[in-house]
Amino acid sequence: MNNEKEKLGRREFIKDALRTMTAAVIGGMGGFIGGRAAKNTVWQLDPNKCVQCERCSTHCVLTESAVKCVHAYDVCGYCQLCGGYHRPGAKIQDTAAENQLCPTGAIQRTYVENPYYEYTITEALCNGCGKCVKGCGAFGNGSLYLQVRHDRCLNCNECAIATVCPSGAYQRVPSDRPYILKGQQGQGS
């Protein structure tokens, strides 16, 4: 009986020692990594690398992609003839559906003054396909571009779009600077 107790006591001691060691290992490893740990990060795509492959609109885990087109107004030429708004080959540059490039009609055009027009993205309609981005990049100043919208993005540990992005445009950025903006806003911050 005494022998049993002694055996139990010894086993407990070994266990205690092992537990302390394991806790030390976890703590040490945590400290090692924690020393290099940084601020929280979020996914964002670099518009300078983006090639508008349309996968942002199809590969997000959300039914409605978290990637949307945004507009850097201060880079926009406010043209009447907009490569991002009008479909290539459109004969007349008005707002009729047959002349629009956006498949969901998410770009709104409003008259500012002769000969300038403002283009606004209706985010609820945008599906992030990037057709307008391609058109604006080819013919215009590239003021339309895609960004991950953080009011929608779930910040998945592995972004489903990043895994299929052909140009490696997706990257993690610090969450206090969550956008890669064009124009003055991109430079000022």
Binding site: Q52, C53, E54, T58, K134, G135, V164
Partner: peptide, 21 residues
């Protein structure tokens, strides 16, 4: 689904195109 989308030839995947012009 992933692999077929990834291996899609660019013509089909890049739907904005001005190739005709």
């Amino acid at each position: 689904r992933t692999s077929s989308a990834v291996n899609k030839p660019p013509e089909a995947a890049i739907l904005y195109n001005i190739d005709d012009y």
